[in-house]
Amino acid sequence: MPETQWTAADVGDQTGRTFIVTGANSGLGEVTALTLAGAGAQVILACRNVEKANVVAAEIGANATVRQLDLSDLASVRAFANSVDGVDVLINNAGVMALPLRRTADGFEMQIGTNHLGHFALTGLLFDKIRDRVVTMSSGLHAYGSIDLDDLNWEHRRYDRWRAYGQSKLANLMFTYELQRRLDAAGSSVRSVAAHPGYAATGLQAHTESIFDRLMSVGNRLIAQSAEMGALPGLFAATAPDAEGGRFYGPRGLGNLRGHPVKVGSTKKSKDEDVAAKLWTLSERLTGVTNFIT
């Protein structure tokens, strides 16, 4: 992408296009939905908390549709996917961060289950209906993660909430790269793109149920950029004609924590094609969503 300061004003006319934004009831998802709808798009707000999503939809108006989606429950993911006729861009935005150990409806560790496996299943179930691209939100904290293929769901290891979060965000990034490799092999025109918001002030940091909630509330005031700025890399990935499949976009500032979107790097682990292929196979087995790229 050119070395310019890309902003929401550069989203361009999205009239006639449909976007799904998971977790669009608050934070980055809310900003993303509002921006896309303001550019003329039809936006499906796919949210666990429908009551909060309805508030955002009311602000948007006729261009918004609210649908219930709980990524921590594969039955909900399937029901949502069955309700969608077609979509130009799927934005896998929803997520949880640094929670105490708990499990999804299907028995997965909550962070890998929601952030990765839920979105993996959603993408697979919607794949034949996606016309343009899949955008998956990761994090700079993917660097703190490792994929444990023998204990993805923390059934045998001592649980560490931050390592679990890092694993889930690394999985998001590896899924993006592996999806693009499979799209290329299939000759598909669909693009798989990753993005991260840097350090953006959102409600995500207020739900760790630990002292980190207080610490990060201070960081939000002193260090973080706004949710509006944090949403830009994802918006670029979702709308820019020159957003490249298999690439990662984030803020350009120091440490990729703040600033306008640019192409950014990722760890050596995120580019391990062998682990990525095995993670894909494991994700298929755990979710039951298989063979969606032919």
Rank of each mutant, 00 (worst) to 15 (best):
M1R: 14
E3D: 12
W6A: 13
A8T: 14
A8I: 12
D13E: 15
Q14R: 06
T18R: 05
T18G: 01
F19D: 04
N25L: 04
G27I: 01
G27V: 01
G27D: 02
G29C: 03
E30R: 15
T32D: 08
A41L: 07
A41G: 07
I44N: 08
A46E: 08
R48C: 11
A53G: 09
V55I: 12
V56W: 03
A57K: 06
A57I: 06
A58V: 14
A58H: 09
I60V: 12
A62P: 10
A62K: 15
A64K: 13
T65L: 12
D70S: 10
D73Y: 00
S76Y: 03
F80A: 03
N82M: 12
G86K: 14
V87P: 04
L90R: 09
A94G: 11
M97S: 00
M97E: 00
L99T: 13
P100G: 02
L101K: 06
L101S: 04
A105S: 11
A105L: 04
G107I: 13
M110G: 00
N115F: 01
H116M: 02
F120P: 06
F120Q: 12
L122Y: 06
L126S: 02
D128H: 14
D132Y: 02
D132L: 03
R133F: 05
V135W: 06
V135E: 04
T136E: 05
G140W: 05
G145C: 04
D151C: 04
L152G: 05
W154R: 06
E155K: 12
H156V: 02
H156W: 04
D160C: 03
D160Y: 05
Q167P: 09
Q167I: 11
Q167T: 15
S168L: 15
N172C: 05
T176N: 15
E178V: 06
E178N: 06
A185N: 07
A185W: 02
A186K: 14
A186E: 14
A195K: 10
A195M: 10
Q205L: 14
A206S: 13
H207V: 14
T208K: 03
T208I: 05
E209A: 08
E209M: 06
S210G: 14
I211M: 11
S217D: 14
R221A: 09
R221V: 05
S226R: 08
G230A: 08
G230W: 09
L232I: 07
L235C: 01
P241M: 04
P241F: 04
P241C: 01
D242P: 13
E244L: 10
G246A: 03
G246C: 03
R247D: 07
F248I: 13
Y249M: 11
Y249N: 04
Y249H: 11
G250R: 08
R252E: 14
G255H: 09
N256P: 01
L257G: 00
P261H: 06
P261L: 09
V264P: 11
K268Q: 15
K268T: 15
K269V: 13
D272V: 11
D272I: 10
E273P: 04
V275I: 15
L286G: 06
T287V: 02
I293K: 01
I293A: 02
I293F: 03
I293S: 06
T294P: 02
